[in-house]
Computed example of a mutant assay.
Amino acid sequence: MKKIKSETDLNAAIWALERKREEDLRLLKAEFHLVSDNLKPLNLIKNTFKKATESPEVKQNLLNTTLGLSSGLVLKKILVGASAGPAKTIIGTALMLGITNVLSHNPEKVEKVKNKIIGFIQTKLKRPRKQIIDITPDSKDITYQDPEN
Rank of each mutant, 00 (worst) to 15 (best):
A52K: 10
K46V: 14
T53D: 02
P86N: 11
E57R: 13
K40H: 09
K124G: 15
G98F: 04
D141C: 03
I91L: 14
N61C: 11
L25E: 10
G72L: 02
L63T: 14
I117F: 09
K2P: 01
T123Y: 13
T123L: 14
K88L: 10
E111W: 08
I45E: 00
N47V: 02
K40P: 00
K77L: 07
V58T: 10
K46I: 15
T53C: 05
G92L: 01
K29C: 07
K20H: 05
P107H: 00
E108W: 06
A84L: 02
T8L: 09
E108I: 04
I99H: 03
K59S: 13
H105I: 03
T123R: 15
T93C: 06
R26P: 00
L62Q: 00
T65V: 13
P41S: 06
I91V: 15
K88S: 14
L69D: 07
F49A: 15
R21M: 07
L67C: 07
I132F: 09
T66I: 09
N64I: 03
Q122L: 07
K40R: 15
R129T: 14
T93L: 07
K76G: 02
L25M: 11
I117N: 05
L28K: 14
D9F: 01
T65I: 14
S70A: 11
L17R: 09
L69A: 11
L63Y: 08
R129C: 08
P56C: 01
K77C: 02
D37N: 15
I99E: 04
K59G: 05
L28A: 12
F32P: 00
N106S: 12
E108L: 11
E57Q: 13
I142N: 01
L67A: 12
T123M: 15
D24Y: 06
G92K: 08
E57V: 10
Q145F: 11
E111C: 06
D146T: 05
V102G: 00
E57I: 11
K59Q: 15
D146Q: 03
S55P: 02
I142K: 03
W15C: 06
P41F: 09
K29E: 12
D9W: 01
P86A: 13
G119W: 05
T89D: 07
I99N: 04
N38K: 15
I78G: 02
T100Y: 01
A52M: 04
K112M: 12
K50A: 09
L25C: 04
L34M: 13
K59W: 02
K51Q: 10
L125G: 12
P107R: 05
K2S: 09
A52P: 00
E18V: 15
N149M: 12
I135W: 09
